[in-house]
Structures are given as C-alpha cells and as structure tokens.
Design a protein around this nucleic acid. Structure first.
Length: 194
DNA sequence: CCTGTGATCAGCT
DNA sequence: GCTGATCACAGGC
C-alpha cells in the first residue's frame, strides 16, 4: 500500500476533505496532522475550477491524488489535493495542521515558534511546509510528499467555508472537533461524524 | 476583543 | 481596472 493509498482521491471532494482530517501530511519530512480542510468542486461557484481549465488551475483538471498549488492574494502559496476523476476540477484546500514533524524548520520559515500559529491557515501551511509553484501538479504518493493514515479517528465537525463570497451556505469546511490548531474555531457542531 | 489596511498577482468583466 | 479559497500589523474599544 502506498502512503497515499489510505485514501481514495477518486471520491467526491467533500468526502475526501472529511477523510483527510486526522491524517498526517509531510513535505520533505516536515508537517503534521491535518485538522482543517475545505472542499471545492467544478459545480461550485466559489471554486477556481468553476469556469473551466486555465493555466493556473490546470492541475485541478489533472489526475486525482496530485497537488494543486496557487498564489493567494499575490502573496501566499496554498496547497490543495486534487479529487474525483481526472478532468473534473475538484479539490481539497489544506487549511490547518497540528505541527508534529520538523517544528524547528517550520519555526525558521515562519519566523515564529508558537506551535498554534505555525500552520493555522492555508497561507501559513504553505509557508511552514515550504510550498511553492514547484509543487504544483506533483503526485502526493511520492517525494517530497508524504501522507500517513490517521492513528486515531478524530471527531469531525463541518461548517461554512471561510473567505469566500459565493456559495457561503455550502458547509464544506471540515475540522477536527475541539482542535487548538484551527485557523478559526467552528461556531457550532452543525455536523459530526466518526 | 474588534476593525482597517498594505502587500502584490492571476484571472475575469 | 477590480476582486479574491490571506496574513500581519496597527490602532481603538
């Protein structure tokens, strides 16, 4: 079984986003437990893929189980996992990690040492893990990526996604219930599972 | 606690 | 031109 074999990226992005909570993401051995994700889909007006393939979002229309990296607000690098069948344009944004591996390296890159602030937000995750344009389109089951199965089944909460203006009512933000490493707390446990 | 603003770029109207 | 799947910092309450 490959490291990424523990999850089925051919599934829908909301299901993958939920299943990723509790798994460990590493880039060059640096990373932690995924505690917050958001799902996006081609039918979703808030998704980068909504208007079809472009030079930027090409990876989203490539094979599942690969990375889609984009520049946010001209400054931050954000990491997504491509889902569903190739050509569909679905993905999961990695929004927050609980740092477990390479804390020193992350602190160095981020210019802070507070574990709670190292990976609490998609831009922060990108900076802490050293994500750049170079990672766009790379497979998640090979170097430098590593994806390890969850050791414990964490209770998952869902709620509305953050920082978007369209499809605000779609509850496609998922998180580890009660985690102190979220980008923002979940207002209420609208949905729980596992 | 909260609100405002700058940084800086790809895509869209 | 303007907007946005963001963050850090400044200032006010």
């Amino acid at each position: 079984m490959t490291p990424a074999g523990a999850i089925d990226f051919d599934g829908s992005s909301d299901q993958v986003a939920r299943e990723l909570i509790g798994m460990t993401l590493l880039v060059d051995g640096v990373g932690g437990v995924i505690v917050e994700t958001e799902a996006y889909d081609r039918e979703d007006p808030a998704s980068h893929s909504h208007s079809g393939p472009t030079a930027r979002n090409a990876a989203m229309f490539g094979p599942p189980g690969h990375a889609y990296v984009y520049r946010s607000y001209g400054i931050h690098w954000c990491l997504n996992f491509v889902c569903r069948e190739a050509g569909h344009g679905a993905g999961v944004l990695i929004r927050a990690l609980q740092p477990t591996h390479g804390l020193e390296r992350m602190a160095q890159r981020r210019g802070l040492s507070d574990p709670r602030l190292l990976c609490a937000g998609p831009g922060r995750v990108g900076q802490a893990l050293g994500i750049t344009r170079e990672h766009n389109g790379l497979p998640l089951d090979a170097d430098p990526f590593g994806l390890l199965p969850a050791t414990d089944a964490l209770p998952v909460v869902a709620g509305p996604r953050i920082g978007i203006s369209k499809a605000v009512d779609v509850p496609w933000r998922f998180g580890a219930a009660g985690s102190r490493f979220l980008s923002r707390p979940f207002r209420q446990a609208a949905l729980t599972s596992m």
